[in-house]
Simulated scan of single mutants.
Amino acid sequence: MATMNGSAGLRRLVRPVVLLALSLAAGWIIIGLVGAVDWQAVGDALGQLHLWQLVLLVAVVVLRQALNAWPLAIFIDGLGLPRAVVNDQASILMCTLAPPPADLAIRMTMFAGWGIDVSRGLAGVVMNTVSFYVVRWSAPVIGFVLVLTDRFDSSFATGALAGGLAALALVVAIWVIASGASAARWVGRSAGRVVRVVRRSVDPDVWAQSVATFRGHIADKLRRGFPRSLLALLAMMVCDATALLLAVRFVGVSSDALPSIEIVAAYFLTYPLTMLPVFGIGALDAAAVAIMVAYAGISYEAPLVAAMIVWRAVTIGTPLTLGAFAVLLWRRMGPAPDPVAPTAPASG
């Protein structure tokens, strides 16, 4: 048993490392196809940055992180936005530094420490994740629509179609689960049967009960909470795209060379690559640079690479720093208020 557990732990550790290596290799290949990078010119572009610009970028990312955590506050009664942000940042830190399920473990530990029922907290985390995936797969559709204002690109259309169908499938699944307990059990049992084809240990009946229990925790929040969570995460991506836009402008690429809509479109078109380890570092960066260089010209490759380096530094460094503070801070936060506790009558 110990040997099996050790092998499973080793696989959990090796898999993200392999995926990260593949992502970086893909980025190197894509950049190589675009053209040889003039790293001296990249350094010159980075030298144009001012301290106030970095401070502004960090501020935008902090806002992004708050919006990213907002669905947790929506789906978990009593959690509140401050605790949601602390929980989310600590999870991001653990997700980056350790293999799964370290990120989920620290979330559950925090919920228990704050007096939040762990099963209710887990249901909120699941809905947060589902909402995020709906928005993630919708991103290429947004990018394609933005590009349509100037041109039609069949490859962008293919990505938008695939992403849109994936997002729609998730929305339909949530709608079916919300329609009733029997429907939720049907979804769970059906999913369990599909997964059992590749993993014989899966029990479809257990999955059915798990999905029904999950529905019981979030059913009263789906009608209003799900759309609000999608809006919060869409605003999160807008902040992220704004950070990239600012980084491009700060390294000296003007709107005449590369319009803002092209920068934002490149971000949305490549956003699904964040599903790779460390938020898709390597593959996403190279793909976004390739899209922007295709519009602006090869002469702008070096400053655009510099912009991606700046964007990566603030969008990865800021959450990890916040996560370190979150791990230190969460025990100092008192228990979450009981969402069903009666309120004291008003005096007088």
Rank of each mutant, 00 (worst) to 15 (best):
P204S: 02
L244T: 02
S182C: 05
V198F: 13
L231Y: 12
W175L: 03
R193Y: 12
D203Y: 02
G192A: 11
A178V: 04
L233H: 09
L246G: 03
F214K: 07
D220A: 15
F226V: 10
A247C: 06
A183G: 07
S182L: 13
W207N: 08
D205H: 10
A212G: 09
V194M: 13
A181S: 15
V211Q: 05
G188L: 04
G216S: 01
A232N: 08
R224G: 11
K221M: 02
V211L: 06
R199P: 06
A232V: 12
S179R: 13
G192I: 00
R193N: 15
V195R: 03
R199F: 08
G180C: 06
A184F: 01
Q209Y: 10
A235G: 14
S190M: 10
K221W: 00
M236N: 08
A191Q: 01
G188M: 12
V206R: 05
V195W: 10
S201A: 11
R189N: 14
R189D: 14
V197P: 04
K221Y: 01
V211P: 03
R224L: 14
C239A: 15
R200G: 12
T242Y: 06
L246D: 01
A243M: 14
R200Y: 02
S190V: 04
Q209N: 14
R199D: 10
V187M: 02
F226E: 06
D205E: 15
G225T: 12
G180R: 03
A235Y: 05
V176I: 15
S179A: 13
S210W: 04
R215T: 04
L233W: 05
C239T: 14
V187C: 09
G180K: 09
L222A: 10
M237P: 06
V194D: 10
P227E: 02
R223C: 10
R224T: 14
S179C: 05
W207A: 15
G192H: 13
